[in-house]
Write a protein that binds this DNA or RNA. Structure first.
Length: 428
DNA sequence: TCTGGGGTCCTAGGACCC
DNA sequence: TCTGGGGTCCTAGGACCC
């Protein structure tokens, strides 16, 4: 794309403000105007905060148990309810997709939209906000620029400065005003510059987005690699990344969880592993892939250095590419038995399906027993159907009847308002 | 007591080949 | 004594994002 064309390009980054916390508030209007936080799996860290919670100085990723008890008492706190958030996300993304010729769904609460050539861009951006608000009760911010990186930056400004009313177009600013604006943005707030790179950049005297934009690409490439070089180019309006309209198939599927309580016995560890493999394999089949490398890992609690530590993984090259839960489970258990050591309190485990290939192209085992393979296929399909209908993990392999100390703590879970008939919101 | 999970991309370095 | 060099493939690890 030439520079003349790229200067006409308009990309919007639209994201939902405080997404998880806002989802909870939408279904519980009493929470409006109050501090609300959502915790990570296992009720560990804070992963979402309402504006009021931010004002109380609750930090992102802060362990909840480290939050000041006085602050805790003022705050409404929820376990993360991904079923709810995923459903609300789908609704928002559908609305956004309808308001642009093309869309990249970038994360659970963000979309890039192609808005090139749209007249009255400002009005259109406000119409997007209006419609999302009206149809879902959620607030979004819209940032517009010629590249994804500039759209992200514009979105950052829209969110930070209330006077823009949630919409900001970087390209309407004169060159001088742009420089002045970028000079006020810390370099670590640029998309793709993390905290380590920021530290090194600041040491070199590159402190702001403006400094970064006018830095020397050669030097930057040498010190920080091609990623940093691209960021600078995109800040200058040079298009390095296009929208990804249809999401590419995943290259790996990983499933891991911290346990609610530590687990020492092999049978319980196996049970947890089987649950993880079942979910991972279902995801694998949903994207029509086979895997030919399986990794299993376990770790003890790194926050308890006073206890014996054992963290390890084992990677298995599978004899052929497969997607069948029972077969994958067999190999996962074998790997687990291989690395398990008695006498340790394991706190986390997981499975990683790697070397994925499209179902059709995958190399099959030379001497696959057709009948056995077909039976595995039918079993997996049946399990997928049951789980789709009655909820994930309605059926899976090797469930023991006893207690499950490994399952997550979720003591503050809100109802699945939109996806479970028994948990619908009642109007009285 | 309690400390997340699932991804991507890039790079350096080793193994191997000719 | 002196022990090539370039290409490819794979993997582990770093950095980042949400």
């Amino acid at each position: 794309m030439g520079s003349a064309a790229s200067s006409e390009r308009r990309i919007a980054l639209v994201d939902v403000n405080n997404f998880y916390a806002s989802c909870e508030t939408v279904f519980n209007p009493k929470l409006r105007g109050k501090p609300v936080v959502v915790l990570s799996n296992n009720d560990g860290c804070v992963v979402a905060r309402s504006a009021e919670a931010k004002a109380l100085n609750i930090k992102m990723a802060q362990p909840w148990h480290q939050v000041d008890p006085t602050v805790q008492r003022q705050t409404a706190v929820f376990s993360s309810n991904y079923t709810l958030y995923a459903d609300i996300s789908n609704r928002v993304m559908t609305i956004l997709g309808d308001m642009a010729p093309s869309q990249e769904v970038y994360s659970i609460d963000e979309s890039f939209l192609e808005l090139t050539g749209i007249r009255e861009l400002r009005q259109h951006a406000h119409a997007i906000r209006q419609r999302v608000s009206q149809w879902t009760g959620l607030t979004v911010c819209v940032g517009v620029g010629t590249t994804k990186t500039r759209a992200k930056l514009a979105n950052y400004v829209a969110k930070k400065s209330p006077e823009h009313a949630g919409v900001f177009n970087l390209e309407t600013l004169s060159a001088i005003d742009q420089s002045a604006l970028l000079a006020k943005i810390p370099v670590g707030d640029v998309w793709g510059i993390g905290f380590r790179t920021e530290r090194r950049l600041v040491q070199m005297g590159i402190r702001t987005a403006a400094d970064l934009r006018r830095s020397r690409p050669k030097q930057l490439r040498q010190q920080f690699g091609v990623v940093a070089e691209r960021i600078v180019a995109e800040l200058n309006g040079e298009v390095c990344t296009e929208l990804e309209i249809s999401p590419p198939a995943k290259q790996q599927i990983r499933l891991s969880r911290s346990f609610g309580a530590a687990v020492s016995e092999l049978p319980l560890l196996k049970e947890a592993m089987l649950a993880f493999v079942s979910i991972a394999a279902e995801k694998l089949r949903r994207q029509n892939s086979f895997t030919s490398t399986l990794q299993v890992f376990v770790c003890t609690n790194v926050f308890r250095p006073d206890k014996p530590q054992h963290s390890t993984g084992f990677t298995l090259k599978l004899p052929y590419a497969m997607d069948d839960t029972a077969m994958l489970a067999k190999f996962a258990v074998r790997a687990l038995e291989h690395l398990y050591k008695p006498g340790y309190e394991y706190k986390k485990a997981g499975v990683n399906l790697m070397s994925l290939s499209p179902r059709g192209n995958a190399q099959l085992e030379l001497f696959t027993n057709d009948r056995i393979a077909k039976r595995g296929d039918q079993l997996s399909t049946a399990m997928d159907n049951i789980n789709r209908r009655f909820g994930r993990e309605s059926i899976c392999l090797g469930r023991l009847s006893g207690p499950r100390p490994w399952s997550m703590n979720q003591t503050r879970l809100s109802p699945a308002y939109t996806t479970n008939m028994n948990q619908l919101l009642l109007a009285r």
